[in-house]
């Protein structure tokens, strides 16, 4: 099966100029926890997740603390960055897969790179959907 036949055909994405507050609103309303960041042509320039926002507010949190003791502290830090553009917090190196690749290549890439989902691009590099682990599992049944 080709990736385009099994991917989730959803174009929900963020733009680099979006603010942290707008992104949190997007995650909250859509139920997504990460989205690709695309430019005006729809080409992927990064990926951003809830984790990136937490790390943005509390740098080193995941490595050092492993436990949160003060919600006010996180709240205060989030408020400090809420108007920042998300491009400062996104991961610019994105592993993508082309829509005409096969499912085996996609599965192999996800396992090797230890990622839960892959943004899918067409031959022009334009974002056309997301391939999630569950898409592959459903395809295998």
């Amino acid at each position: 099966m080709k990736v385009k036949e099994i991917m989730t055909k959803d174009l929900t994405a963020a733009e680099p100029s979006m603010t942290v507050r707008e992104l949190i609103e997007l995650f909250y309303r859509s139920g997504l926890s990460s989205v690709p960041v695309v430019n005006e042509e729809g080409r992927i320039v990064g990926i951003i997740s809830e984790r990136d926002i937490i790390e943005g507010a509390l740098p080193g949190y995941f490595e050092v603390l492993y436990g949160i003791t003060d919600m006010n502290h996180l709240s205060q830090k989030l408020r400090e960055i809420e108007h920042d553009r998300i491009e400062f917090y996104m991961t610019p190196e994105v592993i993508t897969i082309e829509e005409d690749e096969d499912d085996l290549t996609a599965a192999d890439l996800m396992i090797r790179k230890n990622v839960k989902s892959l943004p899918v691009v067409n031959k022009d590099g334009v974002f056309v959907g997301m391939l999630r682990r569950i898409d592959l599992l459903k395809d295998l049944l």
Binding site: K9, D10, L11, T12, L26, V128, G129
Partner: peptide
Amino acid sequence: RAVERRVRDEGITTSFIWV
């Protein structure tokens, strides 16, 4: 959410704005 799921189940690409 129900609209999005039903549209997607038809094989349509979705690009909705959540409000």
